[in-house]
Amino acid sequence: MRIVESAAEENHLLRVHKVILEIGQFAGVIIPSLEFAFSVIKKDTILENTEIEINSPPLLLSCHACEAEYLADLEDLSCPVCQAEDFDILQGREMLVKSIIGE
């Protein structure tokens, strides 16, 4: 809320039609819960009529063993090239306010 309100003020927006969030699969966020929470907290604020759009980008990992970068899901984190389960998370922990649309 603070990020959006601050950005709206800085950009002289009178209305914010939509907030677009990017939430990674490893972020531990339950998206329907976030949508519900937003619907409640936005009441009686400048975001009262603002829609929220939540995108979840693919989980992208980097294998330590063979250096492959691969798409994965939480059910199977192993490398498809060498089957190792030793990875860094390249994409998947994001919790970003990606953009706002307003006027």
Binding site: A7, N11, M95, L96
Partner: peptide, 14 residues
């Protein structure tokens, strides 16, 4: 006349 604008933030919630 007002314009609808897309403001890119890429701001980390945390």
């Amino acid at each position: 006349r007002r314009e609808i604008r897309v403001i890119t933030l890429e701001e980390n919630v945390l």
